[in-house]
Design a protein around this nucleic acid. Sequence first.
RNA 1: GGCGCGAUAGCAAAGCGGUUAUGCACCGGAUUGCAAAUCCGUGUAGGUGGGUUCGACUCCCGCUCGCGCCUCCA
Length: 458
Amino acid sequence: MLKIYNSLTREKQDFVPITPGSVRMYVCGMTVYDYCHLGHARVLVVFDMVQRWLRASGLQVCYVRNITDIDDKIIRRALANKESISELTDRFIGLMDEDAAALGVEKPDHEPRATQYIPQMLGLIKLLEKNGLAYQATTGDVNFSVRKFPGYGKLSGKSIDDLRAGERVDVDTGKDDPLDFVLWKQARQGEPFWPSPWGNGRPGWHIECSAMSSDLLGKHFDIHGGGQDLQFPHHENEIAQSEGAHRCPFVNYWMHNGFVRVDDEKMSKSLGNFFTIREILKQYDPEVLRFFILRAHYRSPLNYSDAHLDDARQALSRLYTALKAAPPAAAEVDWHEPHAIRFSQAMNDDFNTPDACAALFDLASEVNRSRSAGLSSQLRGLAGLLGLLKRDPQGFLQGTPALGTEEMSAEAIEMLIANRLAAKKRKDYVEADRIRSGLLAVGIVLEDDAQGTNWRRA
RNA sequence: GGCGCGAUAGCAAAGCGGUUAUGCACCGGAUUGCAAAUCCGUGUAGGUGGGUUCGACUCCCGCUCGCGCCUCCA
């Protein structure tokens, strides 16, 4: 039985799908005006893992991850770049796809873009207006009336009055209450707009997710995910909009992944301490990054540093080394085998990937001891469910230079290995060792076995 | 100020009221021409003060420290 920690109830709960045998899941994706950073990588990988495990559990999954392609930041960036909004967003959607693919993230079933759902948003706003929850302010903006929605704050555990305590005096917003949020922004000079019953304008941030999720998944669906920082106000507002418009429960299970940190501080755009996926992939194999993300629990904070990635790289090498020692027969998982059982229990316990990884390492030891192709298949099969160990071991072991080591071509390495073998044949161990330590100095490790000499990157 | 989360060995990171987490690093042994890899083995934990219990890293309370949200942010 799968258990999921539900942010809404703040406890682990048995997962019971609305429709037996199938799951509908929505995850807040990217706002496309810049490169994806490590925080985005975490959302992408974590919910890819969730989606994979749901499918592996025999459920039929409909996974939606949206793209926000219209908002203030996008408008500003396009202006600064002197390009059109669609040029900007198309470009970064392409780059995001590349990053996601590198990290082994499977394509969601739907990737709706906000700008393609304007009619649905307008429909939703009309419903909210009809239900007395939306009003047009003197500024022309259409706002959501937070105080008229009972239960506002149930996701984030905030009460409206507590929120008021920290508020700053804000004039000219036209809001009845400072906590009200915008559903539809009145068009301003030089900004893109769409016609609406309330005049030309563009959508507020939160309404797109309510519109896209109900259009693709229905008014009431199973799982909604995203980064912890979206819990308030974004997800809180989504609930208010969706439940306020449809008058029915919105989402059963809310999942929020923890932050990525640098030096124990949240990595964020505003702090400027973020690393893009691209930057990191210049130094590390994408699978190392994926493994780094998955070896921590999705709700825990994840501290980034080169040392931690180096550590992850060494650990992943151990798994690939085991696969190399005993080539797998297949990648089919035998679910009666003890490691598979442990793996499955770990995953069913709120996607405990660190524990699932521990099962993988125990299995690797077993493979090394037994040299069993069957167990090796188990290893590859189970790891595959996390999107790991899909490659040829040699490709991984020889393809990822450690930080600070120089590149050397495979041909050059092979040549030196041949020279060393010749030296060994004539028992010139001084020369043989000289060659080996020379290679080690540039990050190449030689391993002799009965068949000959293999090399890998340290 | 309001609300919430966390504190595990050198580093990273899980489960668990009593029995080896796991990985990296380290140490001893096997193996090797020497190594590497691998195997075997040892060691290093649970912020602090109380409480509950036959027994607590694990449950409860206080304290200290760290972090997050309350504003765009994955």
